[in-house]
């Protein structure tokens, strides 16, 4: 049509969303150096790049440091109950497929108090992007062991060290029926963090991203061996996954060309103990989404409702009997 390019550009300048449009009206109150700040930056960038209308974007969270996330976005936010972000997000999405739904949760929120919902959310496979901020410790309540704390971590509830091996969120997710997207990112590789969140956003279904996130307050050295030695990281690359920039490739030399369609290898990668894999472990775009499965092609209008009510009343009418 006859709109000159210059006008289009002008329109874009005038109406396009900028990063500022996604910043909430209060500044983040996470600790200095907290990995959550980097996740927020990546998500705001994504919203800008995808030009998501803030009024059609909903950030749902539970309780914990991670779950303060929606307060720092300019969008619709829902900062609800500890562990219950996922069922709230499901309720939002079911009848409002027009909304972009993001969930911010943490290792305690998702893998402990909300574990039941997590398992079932994977199975429902509703279209939402789930960012699981995993700092391997309870931060907001001041340092208690979480289900992902490595064995031996000393905390206020485990002064002599934790007793059990940690739960592996990747293996768990990959073990549930209908799993459709599993990725892992690390806050100290922001470029990939963005790419992975972007892939998660573009996947239609339940996109689960575990983000290893440093807690400078309570676990300041937890990820040091990996941060300091890039060779301990394993970057997953693939034409169907994320690709690495030349710069990243130079720093992170351990790479594996992993096809996200390979569930078996994904499970092996998830179980690596020494190396931390970063990238897309698994993707299956063919898993149906619950909101689509449950979508009925019937109108919800007064006429239709009246019609069904009358039909049902007919069945129960005893007098007059005919």
């Amino acid at each position: 049509m006859g709109i000159p390019v210059s006008e289009c550009l002008l329109k874009l300048m005038a109406e396009g969303y900028t990063l500022d449009d996604y910043r909430g009206d209060i500044p983040p109150r996470w600790c200095t150096g907290c990995g959550d700040n980097g996740i927020l930056a990546a998500v705001q960038r994504l919203c800008r790049d995808e030009q998501l209308p803030p009024e059609r974007t909903v950030f749902v969270s539970g309780i914990g440091c991670s779950s303060r996330f929606p307060h720092y976005m300019n969008a619709y936010g829902f900062h609800g109950l500890h562990g219950r972000a996922l069922p709230v997000a499901e309720g939002v999405k079911l009848r409002r497929p027009d909304l972009h739904v993001f969930v911010s949760t943490g290792d305690g929120d998702c893998c402990s108090i909300g574990a039941a919902h997590w398992i079932h959310a994977i199975r429902y496979n509703m279209d939402m992007t789930v960012l699981m901020h995993d700092n391997q410790i309870y931060g907001l309540t001041k340092k208690q062991a979480s289900p992902t704390s490595p064995r031996g971590v000393k905390s206020n509830t485990t002064p002599r060290g934790t007793y059990l091996d940690p739960l592996n969120p990747l293996s768990v997710t990959l073990g549930v029926a209908n799993v459709s997207f599993v990725a892992q990112a690390a806050d100290w590789i922001p470029e990939l963090l963005y790419d992975i969140i972007s892939e998660a956003y573009h996947h239609k279904g339940f996109s689960f991203v575990r983000i290893l996130q440093r807690c400078p307050e309570f676990m300041p050295h937890q990820f040091d061996p990996w941060v300091q030695n890039p060779d301990k990281m394993l970057l997953l690359t693939h034409e169907k996954g994320v690709q690495l920039s030349a710069g990243l490739s130079k720093v992170y030399r351990k790479q594996e060309a992993h096809d996200p369609g390979d569930l078996h290898r994904a499970r092996e990668i998830a179980s690596l103990s020494e190396q931390i894999p970063v990238g897309i472990l698994y993707r299956d775009s063919d898993v149906p989404c619950y909101e689509d499965v449950r979508m009925v092609d019937r109108l919800h209008t007064p006429d239709v409702i009246k019609g069904v009510l009358e039909e049902e009343f007919d069945k129960f009418t005893i007098w007059p009997s005919e």
């Binding site: 909903v58 069922p87 709230v88 309720g91 999405k93 009848r95 919902h117």
Partner: peptide, 11 residues
């Protein structure tokens, strides 16, 4: 929680 989410979203 699901019902709350749906209500929050207007339904």
């Amino acid at each position: 929680a699901f019902a709350i989410g749906a209500s929050y979203a207007g339904k």
